[in-house]
Amino acid sequence: MTYGGKRAVDGLSLSVAAGSITAVLGPNGAGKTTTLETCEGYRKPQQGTVRVLGLDPIADRKQLLPRIGVMLQGQGAWSGVRAMEMLRHISRLHAHPLDIDYLADRLGLDECGRTPYRRLSGGQQQRLGLAMALVGRPELVFVDEPTAGMDPQGRRTTWELLRELRADGVTVVLTTHYLEEAEELADQVHIIDRGRMIASGSPLELTRGPGNGMSATATVRLVVTKPFPPGARESLRKALGEDTEVVLLDERSMRVTGKADPTTLAKVSRWCEENDVLPESLTLGRRSLEDVFLDLTGELYLTEGVEHA
């Protein structure tokens, strides 16, 4: 997909298993919405093919639309309409809609009362958007940043609901830029950046890290009270062994990734003692999806920099 000469989605190839939750993750402008809207039939791909439930989203629109649920990124309702009126209206376009009172109760829409849509909070508008996507009892739902603008309570409710959908056999495709959301919910995560897929896998596969096979990886974050002395990264790496990765995050913090090994933490702490740096915090944990994401997008940026030079 190209917009005004700028490639928004380029050679993206992904497929989604039925009855699963797939997260499409990426920074703003990565091409997440464009990808989704191509599946929803709003955009025609300039190259390549898209099949949704085996149907062409443009040519087979009539058959496809009743079977999918779509939650747009914001808006999508008359400015003067009340939440329940809007939900009831969408439900009337479907043959076997869900009970709208049940749905409203689950998503806390009853609190909207007679307030017109334009005066609902961002979170309320989002929840109504989700309700509209679900009310027709679709086989497949596309939700574009479902929890953007929601409070933590609303986010929990939404996650619960999406898991329940999966349990009932509904396929869910969501975009998000909350890594936590992808990690919590998704069976499969596709990370895209600048219209290209840069990593795919289950959250576990992705956080296990590249090239480490089945062996578990541990991450240690070290934050110190004053800037590291010169050469600190290299000297810590030597102390820990060659198969360890040490990244200087800023002048006072480093990330150490290596084999999960009970001695790692002890070695880091001994290194601090020997080099006369005072640790402010030393935390051990699994590599988070955020680490993966920053690594991947950071890497991509570097390679492109080299190409341009």
Partner: peptide, 17 residues
């Protein structure tokens, strides 16, 4: 974290006449 199936959302798509 698998959630128990409630059957509430079991797909049953279709257009109204």
């Amino acid at each position: 974290m698998p959630e128990a199936a409630t059957g509430m959302f079991t797909p049953k798509p279709g257009s109204a006449p």
